[in-house]
Design a protein around this nucleic acid. Sequence first.
DNA 1: TTGAAAGCGCTACCAA
DNA 2: TTGGTAGCGCTTTCAA
Lengths: 344, 344
Amino acid sequence: MVQIPNTPSAAPPTPRSVPTSADVARAAGVSRATVSYVLNNSSAVRISEPTRRRVHAAAKELGYVPHAAARSLRAGHSRMVLMPAPAIPVGPLFGRFVTELQWALGSLDYTVVQYGTLGLHGDEAARAWAELRPVAVLVPGAGLGPQGVAVLKRAGARAVVTFGPERVDGAHALLTDQSGVGHCAAAHLYARGRRRIGVVIPEEPGLEVFSRPRLDGVRRRLRDTDAVVTGLPLAYAEASAAELASRWRELDLDGVFAYNDEYAMLLMRALQDEGVRIPEDTAVVGADDLMLGRLLRPRLSSIHIELPSGRALAELVDRAVCAPGAQPETHTVLGASLVQRDSS
Amino acid sequence: MVQIPNTPSAAPPTPRSVPTSADVARAAGVSRATVSYVLNNSSAVRISEPTRRRVHAAAKELGYVPHAAARSLRAGHSRMVLMPAPAIPVGPLFGRFVTELQWALGSLDYTVVQYGTLGLHGDEAARAWAELRPVAVLVPGAGLGPQGVAVLKRAGARAVVTFGPERVDGAHALLTDQSGVGHCAAAHLYARGRRRIGVVIPEEPGLEVFSRPRLDGVRRRLRDTDAVVTGLPLAYAEASAAELASRWRELDLDGVFAYNDEYAMLLMRALQDEGVRIPEDTAVVGADDLMLGRLLRPRLSSIHIELPSGRALAELVDRAVCAPGAQPETHTVLGASLVQRDSS
DNA sequence: TTGAAAGCGCTACCAA
DNA sequence: TTGGTAGCGCTTTCAA
């Protein structure tokens, strides 16, 4: 590619300044307005074919790329959907969900941006998000309060959607009813005749938001029955599982909901090493219905968790953006259904 | 929701327009300049304490949040580090790496943004990224060419870092030498006396970027030896594994590198169901060194993969941003080391 | 100590 | 069909 020097001497291959539409206009011998019309295919104005060609050629020659910030500043709005990156490590389920959502929003001509706001909390975080003036914000997890929602809306967000355990005033809510997962597991174990039921509680920080409601769900299901529930703290490490397994006889449990399939595998291995028979002595149920569980022996029963379709969520966002005055919608989105295999 | 007129009557709790610094200035009875000084704690100018207080009060009262786009437009630069979201599903290793990187860059006062550009390819994608005028771009995977790098640099990116299998002209490179993983596995299997070696090749689309160089690494290590290498296409599904296992006797393999721990588990299970003894009949080696592998019986030997520390990468980015003229650095960042357990 | 004003890059209105 | 120009929200220099 030939470089055209703007000083008489030999030009460096990297012009130091970013080309603007004014540069393109100058190079094409037209006004900035014309450049804008051409590059945006403005249908309101007809530009002659030769002019179009000159503008396109100049833009390509200069390597012109429009400045998104300037454009949305001028337009007064953007089509950015902001999604704060979840602080806690998410599993493959959620990862797939996010990918699907990106596709769906992309095909509605939104731009999805994941913004890492590690370390900021609550309203602090909301302010940081608001600075970007997104048209919609999709907040996974808890941690956003009504204040935060208000900040975002004041900053022009036409839709705020929370994806977590509880409604937040003013925001659309996708209620992830984790307690339903526990409820489902407990119902199953109870139906299988188990009465002394353990519930694994991961010790890893950040997982309480999931583990506590799951435990609550178990408790809720077994209230007013003859079943007894025992919480079982467990770190995701062999030693912790071995220690727990060594106390198994005295714990005297005939069923356990292991939080998810990974903890279930960890625990099952330790129990089997300890000589505990599954499911005869203790039935085990996991959650997430990973491939993993199908490979264990005995095959692991699991709670299949159905996340909302990215498509549906994208449409909710679009609807909310188009009618920002509408009542916030509330949907309960965590489908929990038992997949029985051989461990229970 | 009740509509409130913006006439002199009862003050509306929801003003319909986003407050600007001019609104704050008006409310505080000062000029926009003063507002800017106060809110940015400008050290160049001393503002009296009463004025500061008035400005802060007005800002809080109005719920003022600065407009990031306007600010960086004025400043001529931003501190945004753009990271296109990888198209292929990434494992927990990479997830942790990204989180760590966000922390590290955050503490250097950069803002990490993951931008989902699904469906755009090569230079198309680079242009979309360039529109955001990031100060640095961190591109995982292949797919960015020298053209793309040039576009980004022209758009003001002071550092472009690729994180993938090959160097790209003009960009810093973090070379992920996947072939080293295969090399390491092959060396181990060979040392254990295995000579008829299978290499699992996932059939899932998108994984070729990892699986092909890993296979190449195996081939490279075993070239000019008496060992024979066989590629084993395998989908991540029980049926596929069962089908492969059913052909195991005729394949006549005494060692297999299973791509990673998950495929290894899938294959091991199928082989065991088929009566193949591990490691006696066939040795199995995985990769990623997940907890998972420690829980299998026999315990799975695995290639431990060391990703660069987020800290180190953040420092590379910072260095590159501060000295944009410097020679692009190239680092080989994938440490591969064998963790021998009982499956080989 | 504070204010007036220019200008970042872009689009859209109005005039030619 | 094209050009001039105002102004989006912000920072910063210069002047008062």
